[in-house]
Amino acid sequence: MAEKNFYSHSDAAEKSRRDKAVALARYLWDRDISADDLAAMAADVRRKVARAADINPPSSDETWTVVTTLLREKAEWARDHPGHDAARRAHSDEKILWVKPPVQPWR
C-alpha cells in the first residue's frame, strides 16, 4: 500500500506557507501593490513576482489567499497609523513593473 504524504497538512507545512506569505506580502507592500492588484494578476505574473522577491513561487492558491489577507490587514493598519515608518512603501516606483495602469483611449 502506498504511503500518503501528509506533509502538506502538517504544522511544519502551515508554518512554511505562512512564512512565504509574509515574505511575499512584504515585497508587494513595499511596491504599493494592493490586495486587489494581486487578485487581478494572472498566475504567470504572480510567479514572476515571487521569483523577483527571491521566493519559490507558491504551488497553490492557498498561499496567495493568505498574502491577500495580509495585504488587506496591513492597508487597514497603515490607514490608522499614517505617520508610522512601517506604513511607508520603500519601492512604490516599482509598482509599474507589475501593475500596468489602464490605457486611456484617444479622444
Rank of each mutant, 00 (worst) to 15 (best):
R51E: 13
A50Y: 00
S34G: 01
A53D: 04
D85L: 11
K95I: 07
D85H: 09
P101T: 08
L71P: 00
R88P: 02
A39V: 08
R88N: 11
K4A: 09
E3R: 04
D54K: 15
K74S: 05
A23T: 15
V67G: 02
H84K: 08
R17Y: 08
N5E: 09
A12S: 14
A42T: 11
V66D: 14
R18K: 12
R88D: 10
F6C: 09
K100A: 14
R89P: 02
W77I: 03
L38S: 05
V22C: 05
H91G: 02
Y27L: 04
V67A: 03
P58K: 14
E76S: 11
E62P: 00
A25V: 00
S10E: 07
A52S: 15
I96M: 03
A2K: 13
W64F: 14
A78C: 14
R18D: 12
K95Q: 12
T65A: 15
R51K: 13
V49D: 00
V67M: 04
L38Q: 05
W106G: 15
A21Y: 10
K74Q: 10
D32V: 04
R79H: 12
D54M: 14
A40Y: 05
P101G: 06
P105L: 10
A87P: 01
A52K: 14
A40D: 13
K4D: 04
D44N: 09
D80H: 11
R18M: 11
W77M: 01
A21M: 12
Y27K: 00
S10Y: 02
K4G: 04
S59F: 06
W29Y: 06
V67N: 03
L24D: 02
L24M: 10
I55M: 07
H91Q: 09
H84D: 15
D19I: 07
Y27A: 11
F6R: 08
A35H: 01
L97H: 11
V99T: 07
R18V: 08
W98L: 06
R88H: 12
R46T: 06
L38K: 00
A50N: 03
K48L: 13
V67P: 01
D54C: 09
I33C: 05
F6Q: 09
R79Y: 12
R26T: 05
R47T: 08
V45M: 15
A50Q: 02
R107W: 10
R31M: 03
E3G: 02
T68H: 07
D54Q: 13
Y7A: 14
L70D: 05
A2D: 11
R88Y: 08
H84Q: 11
S60Q: 13
T68V: 03
E73P: 00
H91M: 06
W29L: 06
D36M: 08
L38P: 02
R47I: 07
G83D: 14
S34L: 01
A40Q: 15
V49Y: 01
A78K: 03
S59N: 12
I33T: 01
A25C: 05
H84L: 05
A23I: 11
A87I: 04
I33S: 00
A50E: 03
M1K: 10
E76M: 12
R107P: 08
P58L: 09
A42W: 11
I96W: 02
A87T: 04
A52G: 13
R79C: 11
A42I: 08
W29P: 00
M41I: 07
R31I: 04
R26Q: 04
R79I: 11
L70E: 07
S10P: 03
E76T: 14
T65D: 15
R51N: 13
F6E: 12
A21F: 12
H91A: 07
P82E: 05
